Simulated scan of single mutants.
Amino acid sequence: MKPIAIDAHMVGERETGNETYTLSLIRALLALPPDERRGFDFVLYATEPARLRARLNPNHAVRIRRIWPAPSPLRIPFAMPAATLRDRASLLHVNYVAPPAGACPHVVTVHDISYDIYPRFFSPRDRWMLKTLVPFTMRRAAAIITVSQHAKQEIIARYGLPADKISVTYEAAGEQFQPVADPAARLAVRQRLGLPAHVPYFLALGNLQPRKNIGRLVEAFALARQAPELASTRLVIAGKALWRESEIYAAVQQAGLMDVVHFPGYVDDADLPALYSDALAFVYPSLYEGFGLPPLEAMACGAPVICSNAASLPEVVGDAALTITPTDAGALADALRQVVAAPALRAQLSQRGQARAAQFTWRRCAQETLEIYRRAKKG
């Protein structure tokens, strides 16, 4: 049986959304019962096979091949085509960029085209590479997967690609994202991340980059803390520092909030449920998302969610979050005050959020992805 090859090189690279999608999809595909997976075999390509193997269920037998050289200028055009030829793969599934030529057709997942919609949020090098390579990959692909209807419509409008070539498979919060009620477990995570014990905090999570709009959140937090009931609150901004992250640190300094804003850095998956569960609210003021997985994870953990009304986010959160215009610091400050001043609202958002998160599953994503593979192989 000719296998489906899946590029999993980013697993373990702390690539946040792309890594979560790839790892969660692989796990869900391998967990499907044999009758659903009939006719499918998989081979996974990783730059560090042991690291990928450690993240998978040991009961799931799957081939993992080392892909080398690791740097993308060599891995994508040379190593991957050679690997698919060696493995006699029937299909190659990648994120964003596929080899320019190869021994088998490819399926590409394009989470969003933010590089084209908001080019100012990317370094000149990344912007040039993405604007050149991603459209080229999509035009050559046997099938395109994206993660929201909003992202699909943008791809169609921007590149004129046929709608029937693009499928939407929604992401989901993993099974580990559940409310953590144990105070000791929450406290242990606070201590591990260097956060003060027993102090109420708002949580923001995501790579520190301009698109996440964290500077505006800092401004709103400074406004909200003027209310007496918020004077003791803190802001936790978790995530890996990326391009232009210094602007966020500068905003904190300028607002005089150095003692009440905490940057624990990248947070491991194992610590996220407790971090979400312990928050007064999870705040996601992003200017643009193809899907927006962190709000769904926070909802699954019972955290009230405040997020922007931009791009795909209303499609994801439905009526289970407080949504605000991301450029309006005053509206965001009001939302922060509301969730503190109104315990009934906080409880309602928590309840609605858990119900909303339960509507999205990785199992369904895997089932729909298998169907896309079937169609792509036939085509």
Score class of each variant (00 low, 15 high):
F177P: 00
T169L: 12
L25N: 05
P228C: 09
V189L: 03
R37C: 06
I144N: 01
A333K: 02
K212L: 00
T169K: 03
P77Y: 03
S24C: 02
A329D: 03
L313E: 08
W68D: 09
A333M: 04
T169F: 00
R139I: 00
L74Q: 05
T233C: 15
L187P: 00
F136N: 15
V62M: 08
A220I: 03
E175G: 12
Q191M: 11
G17T: 05
A79M: 06
C104D: 09
L223E: 10
V339T: 10
L52M: 07
A197M: 04
S277I: 01
T233S: 14
S286W: 02
M129V: 14
P71G: 13
A5L: 04
Q153F: 09
S246Y: 06
T22A: 11
A224K: 02
P273C: 14
F78W: 12
R186H: 02
F42Q: 05
E36I: 02
F78T: 02
A31D: 13
G102H: 08
R363M: 06
V340W: 05
A89M: 05
L92T: 05
V260G: 11
A366F: 01
V199M: 06
Y21F: 15
C307E: 10
R53K: 15
W243G: 00
C307L: 10
L287R: 13
V236E: 09
H93M: 02
R86F: 08
A8I: 01
